[in-house]
Design a protein around this nucleic acid. Structure first.
Length: 229
DNA sequence: CCAGACGTTGTT
DNA sequence: GTCTGG
DNA sequence: CCAGACGTTGTT
DNA sequence: GTCTGG
């Protein structure tokens, strides 16, 4: 699954990589411990234009009464997108890509949870497949909130050592197909949400400082060092 | 028909 | 809003 | 995802 | 145990 990730990139680099223009004025700060509820950069397509915007991590269904409705919609299972009421409609027309440099998974060992940092080998920047939604507060005059969720799929071979799920990730050449809001070919869209190739994943253990979302510095991705080795 | 849920993961 | 359960 | 709080009244 | 905050 995917509940924390890393983003260390400038807005300029994002524009260049995705050929996207920012919606409004905002800045991007590098964060080595991105946690749910933060507003993070996403790539969406409007018409034939790619846009960069910041949405909130944790999808809020458009019909929700309250922003904290008790749901935990930070991930969406690829296998059941069309069956789940909260995801069926965004899957049809509100697909997005969440840029990340890597992500964390916790491996259960006995009673312990051991954090690991995972990256792709070939690409410095990962394209998480996601869905977004726009939620309008009931109170008049309050700004709508756009939010997103990261799609998960079966873990590939290396990641299955840590966990049985992993985020769905896209090739650069698949982005046009995924982002096109006019694309209604859900069968081929689902085909994009496969486990990532085994030979393009690497990971290593990191220190427990990442456990607290209050920490966000670059030392969090330093390899774990046993004090007694 | 109306009421109530609408999510994932992990653990039991 | 839309689907499921009663 | 994990960490941390989880409560009220009255007094300083 | 469960919810909120980061």
């Amino acid at each position: 699954m995917c509940g924390r990730y890393v983003l260390k990139i400038t807005l300029q680099e994002l524009q260049q990589k995705y050929g996207a223009t920012p919606e409004g004025i905002f800045t991007i700060e590098e964060n080595y411990n991105v946690a749910p509820s933060l507003h993070m950069p996403v790539i969406v397509q409007q018409g034939d234009q790619r846009k960069i915007d910041k949405y909130r991590w944790g999808l809020i269904p458009f019909w929700a009464k309250e922003i904290n409705s008790g749901y935990s919609m930070i991930n969406a299972r690829a296998e059941s997108l069309e069956q789940k009421k909260s995801y069926a409609s965004p899957f049809k027309s509100k697909r997005c890509v969440i840029p990340a440099n890597g992500f964390y998974e916790w491996k259960k060992a006995g009673g312990e949870k051991i954090p690991h940092y995972i990256t792709q080998k070939r690409s410095e920047l990962i394209n998480f497949a996601g869905l977004y939604e726009e939620w309008k507060p009931q109170k008049e005059g309050e700004a709508p909130i756009k939010s997103f969720t990261i799609i998960t799929t079966d873990a590939n071979k290396p990641i299955s050592e840590l966990h049985d799920r992993m985020p769905a990730m896209l090739l650069d050449e698949e982005l046009d197909i995924w982002l096109d809001p006019e694309n209604k070919d859900t069968d081929s869209l689902k085909d994009l949400l496969r486990p990532w190739p085994n030979d393009d994943i690497s990971f290593y253990r990191v220190g427990k400082e990442v456990n607290s979302a209050r920490n966000s510095g670059k030392q969090l991705i330093n390899p774990y060092r046993d004090l007694f080795s």
